[in-house]
Simulated scan of single mutants.
Amino acid sequence: MTVQQRVAVVTGGGQGLGRSFCLALAEAGWAVAVVDLDLENARAIAGKVEASGGIAKGFHADVSDENAVSRLAEQIEGGLGAVSVLVNNAAIFSTLSMGSYDEISLQTWKRVMDVNVTGTFLCCKEFAPRMAAAGYGKIVNISSATVFTGRPGYLHYVTSKAAVIGLTRALASEVGPQGVRVNALAPGSTETEVERATITREAREKMAGETALRRVQVAEDLVGTVVFLASEASDFVTGQTINVDGGLAFH
């Protein structure tokens, strides 16, 4: 796979899925802007990339803050160059508690929407015009396979990730004529280094047993799809949602 330009932005890149996306994109040849609310984590992942011979810089930003996202874009272009790939991965999930819909506070609901939906929108709004001006770009929005299964206990999260799919489709229609492709990736329940109090090992094994592939999903199962969607190999793919969950929900 080849790339026209070599700068990729990954939000929420300091841990979990974002960490793996950063490392995989760097290995595939992109200079990576590792963006995270925790600057120390972002710099640590950037350091891992550089230690392996790649190019990366860590950046701090709250993606739900419009001014912060605008500053971020300027900093990345100044530090790494023009961006051709944006992976909207930043989201609230691992810290959420499971519960019935009527137990979700309005404050929690709004915060999940602010980060998971508005944050994705703001990053697209900032970077898509820059890609359009260059005539080429790739946006990969991270949704969730929970949208297809209607998983209970996470109404706020599932709703936010369904919104990301709608955003992906509508934006793809708008920016396609300018050479910008927009797709979504829907991961299944994925084991990472980030601990989650809401899922036990037994529960994870049970979910794995319900998939076609019968094993626990890990972050490395997703990176090939991200690299594909970021590369020229997917240049005629846009507005799509690719479900990567080992065969739990057939979509």
Score class of each variant (00 low, 15 high):
R204Q: 14
L39A: 12
D65M: 04
A184K: 03
T238M: 06
E232D: 15
S70A: 14
A212K: 11
S84F: 03
E193L: 11
I45V: 15
A68H: 05
Q107F: 00
G47S: 14
V175Y: 02
G58S: 15
E74I: 10
A186N: 11
L17K: 01
T108W: 08
A82N: 08
L39H: 07
S105M: 11
S84Y: 03
G12C: 05
L96S: 06
A33P: 05
N183T: 09
A132N: 11
T108I: 12
W30N: 02
A163H: 06
L171P: 01
E50V: 15
R6Y: 08
G209K: 06
V32I: 10
N89W: 01
L229G: 01
I76N: 01
G246H: 03
R71A: 12
N243A: 13
I45S: 02
K138C: 13
A162E: 12
N183I: 05
V117N: 01
G188E: 01
V10I: 14
S20R: 08
E202M: 03
T238D: 05
V69W: 02
I199T: 12
V85H: 02
L229A: 02
L25V: 06
D221F: 07
P152G: 07
R214L: 06
R71M: 11
V69T: 03
M131D: 02
S231C: 14
I199G: 04
S100K: 11
I104Q: 04
S70H: 11
I104D: 02
M113T: 09
L155I: 15
T120P: 00
G18P: 00
L167G: 01
L155A: 15
A233Q: 13
A219Q: 00
A26S: 15
G29D: 09
W30V: 03
E126C: 09
E126W: 05
G224D: 13
N89C: 07
S143K: 04
V7Q: 00
E205R: 08
Q107R: 08
G81V: 06
G53H: 06
E27R: 15
G14S: 12
A145V: 05
T192R: 06
L25P: 00
G150S: 10
A249I: 09
E40I: 14
K125Y: 03
Y157N: 00
E195S: 12
